[in-house]
Design a protein around this nucleic acid. Structure first.
Lengths: 241, 241
DNA sequence: TTATTTAATGTCAGTAAGACAATATTACCC
DNA sequence: GGGTAATATTGTCTTACTGACATTAAATAA
């Protein structure tokens, strides 16, 4: 730690310095609907409004570390429960926060269906809300979080086209039908089950079969799969249009 | 400007504040090679090393405004000359700058073939360097700019698959062959000219024909096209594999 | 045993891509 | 002017993949 400095040790005295926040778009699929994890704000500004979980970068902390720390602190989700996380984008309009100019680095996370979230450290509530309910309702999220959420949803829709990441919404092992329901929830359409099965099982690296099956449910047992090792799908999954 | 504040007016006295820089990955195609615009640093740290152009966010300035300002200031490229620009990602490792923790928001720009850049305001030099030369050579760029550049190149390769943005490397009007040479330079492969022609002209919104042709060059004159209005290609352009 | 439910495989036509042949239209050279 | 070279564009054929939909398989429930 030879480079460790106090906050007051600044190499460019004249340069503008800004608070840097990390905000999280945590998505999951519940009851065949794409949902986002939101926090009800306990303090001004936007007190009582729904917002994305997030917090400020601390001294010596990387952006990924901040994202992981805030996820755990604010929503109780451990790192091991996260199916996938990537940086979504950075939002820096000078007036996006009424208090002062704050830079927000947004991260996008996919998690399997979660138990009801518990309230975080502050006295605020967490909830898992269907995306459709937010876009049709007139209620806006705090700050520019509507815009960030919209970007996260669009990124997610695109990611499912050319990566095998839909599996990140399922557990470690899943059926082809569970995977199809993820696609249907995220894309908001229905897909032909036989064609989907053929596509998924014949595309190299999309999924790999385990030697286990489902049991106890009605109907024929289904083969269980886990995510394959491909980074991209060749050819991609198509959603028409 | 009711919210205008002095730099010293801070709503969260205890929150860490960091300098926020915007760095630019400016790509162009020259002599059938994908190239990047670099600046030779005139000051420490990394004095004399090649680096991406960039600079710090100023008071009241959005990230896009910073990107555009730095592009003009450091490389002399006007906004009208830029074919396309988007945010690439944000890099925030605490030790990425030896002086102190600085957040870098990277932007990716595509520009048509440029005249030799002139030196910017500071006494530093700008140059347009083939990507291949950077990746095979042992010389590293300043800071984490190798990583940022790599991310920009990979984003660009992916963008050409599912958007019509290759045209942003050409001028307003271009031939199908000029467009194909962009793909070949970015992807580092050769593409079959007749098949490429069919694909580009039959995919809705990829290009639209003008009523002009080339003339004066050897061989049959080529039809001139401009970029179509599609945001995404359906189906996408494939690069095998 | 039979019906019901869900999973998985098979069929067939239409579409798009890769390989490559053939034709079109210009400039260049004698 | 006629032939040659260069580049652009269109056409052909095979193969791979998708979408629509029929069929079979394997479990539970009545």
């Amino acid at each position: 730690m030879t480079n460790k400095k106090y906050i007051t040790s600044q190499s460019f005295p004249s340069i503008l310095r800004l608070p840097v926040a990390v905000d999280l778009v945590v998505l999951t699929v519940r009851d065949a609907a794409l949902c986002v994890l939101l926090i009800k704000r306990g303090i001004a500004p936007f007190k009582g409004k729904w917002a994305l979980p997030g917090g400020f970068v601390c001294t010596g902390e990387s952006l990924e570390a901040t994202a992981q720390r805030e996820l755990t602190e604010e929503t109780g989700i451990a790192a091991a429960q996260v199916g996938y996380m990537e940086q979504l984008g950075t939002f820096g309009a000078p007036n996006r926060d009424p208090r002062e100019h704050i830079i927000a680095v947004a991260y996008l996370a996919f998690v399997p269906n979660l138990p009801e979230p518990k309230a975080g450290g502050d006295a605020h509530f967490a909830a898992i809300v269907p995306i459709s309910q937010l876009f049709e309702g007139a209620e806006k999220l705090a700050f520019d979080h509507d815009v960030i959420l919209q970007a996260g949803v669009e990124r997610t829709r695109a990611k499912l086209e050319y990566t095998p990441l839909a599996a990140a919404f399922c557990g470690a092992e899943f059926t082809i039908n569970a995977l199809r329901k993820v696609y249907e929830a995220v894309w908001g359409c229905t897909l032909d089950a036989p064609n989907f099965h053929r596509k998924v099982t014949k595309t190299a690296g999309f999924v790999e079969a385990t030697d286990a099956q489902t049991s106890g449910e009605s109907g024929r047992p289904a083969q269980l799969f886990r995510q394959g090792n491909a980074l991209a799908l060749h050819p991609p999954m198509l959603r028409g249009g």
